[in-house]
Design a protein around this nucleic acid. Structure first.
Lengths: 88, 88, 88, 88
DNA sequence: ACGCAACGCATCCGCC
DNA sequence: GGCGGATGCGTTGCGT
C-alpha cells in the first residue's frame, strides 16, 4: 500500500518549499530593483525615462537573442549543436 | 550645472547596469521555479494543485502581515490619544 | 467579404457603446464608494483602518473560494485516480 | 466612557458593508464588460483595436470634460453654479 | 510630492 | 496550435 502522507507527501512538501524559497528570493530582488530606482531618483534621475532606456536596451538584446536562437536552430539542423550555450 | 555626458552620464549608466544585473538574476530565478514545477510534474504531481497550495499558503502569510499592520495602525491611533507619545 | 461601414460597423458601434455605458456605471459606483469613505470620515472613522479591514475581509473570502477550488481539484483528481487503493 | 462595540461599532459595520456591496457591484460590471469583449471577439472583432477606439473616444470626451470643468470653475467663481450640469 | 492602490496591458501556462 | 485564464509589469490616479 502506497502511503499518502508518507514519502509522497514529503516529496511534495519539498517541492513546495523549494518554490517558496525561490519566490522569496525573486521578491527580494524585485525589492532591490525598487531600491535602485529610488536611489537613482534621489540623484535627480527620472525613473520613467530610465524605464524607457531599459526597455530599449532590452529590445536590442532580445533582437540579438533572436539571432542567437536562429543560429542555434541552424546549428541543430546541421547536427552541430553545442551544449552549454548559455554562457556567463 | 551638471554636465550631461560627464559624471551624470556615468552615474546613470551605473544605475542602469545594476538594474539590468538584478533583472537578470530575477529572470534566472523565475527559470529555476519553472524547472522545479517541471521536476514535480515528472514525479507525478499536478502543477495546478501545487499552484493552488502555494497561493493559499501565500494568502495566509499575507493575511498575517495585514493583521499585524492593522494592529500597528490601532496602536498608533491609541498612542496619539493616550499621552503625548512619540509620534513622528 | 463583409462591408466595412455597413452592418459590421453598426455592430461594432453597438459593442463600443455598450462597453462605454458599463464603464460609466462602473465609474459611478467608484464615485459612490468614495462618498461612503468621506461620510465615514465625517463620522470620525479612520479610513486607513477601514481600508485595512476591508482588505482583510476580502482576503478571508478569497481564501475560502480558493480552498473550495482546491477541494474541487482534489475531488476531480481522486475521481480519476480512484481504482482500488483509497489509502491516505 | 464611550461604548466601543455599541453604536459606534454598528455604524462602522454599516459603512463597511455598504462599501463591500458597492465593490461587489463594481466587480459585476467589470465582469459584464469582459463578457461584451468576448462577445465582440466571437463576432470577429479585435479586442485590442476596440480598446484603442475606446481610449481615443475617452480622450476626446475627457477634453470636453476639461472644458466643462473649467466652465464650472468659472461659474462657481461667479456664484452662478448650476446643479445637474451633467447634460446629454 | 510621495507612496499606494486600481487599472490596463503583455506574457505565459494549461486546456482543448 | 489557438484560446481563455492567470500572473506579473507598467501606468495612472487618489489619498495622505
Amino acid at each position: 500500500m502506497t502511503q499518502y502522507g508518507g514519502i509522497t507527501g514529503e516529496l511534495l512538501k519539498q517541492f513546495i518549499e523549494r518554490i517558496e524559497r525561490l519566490e522569496q528570493e525573486k521578491s527580494n530582488i524585485a525589492s532591490d530593483i525598487k531600491d535602485v530606482f529610488n536611489e537613482a531618483k534621489s540623484n535627480g534621475f527620472d525613473t520613467k525615462v530610465m524605464r524607457q532606456v531599459l526597455k530599449i536596451r532590452k529590445m536590442n538584446s532580445e533582437e540579438r537573442q533572436e539571432l542567437e536562437s536562429l543560429l542555434d536552430t541552424y546549428l541543430h539542423a546541421l547536427g552541430m549543436a553545442v551544449d552549454g550555450g548559455d554562457d556567463e
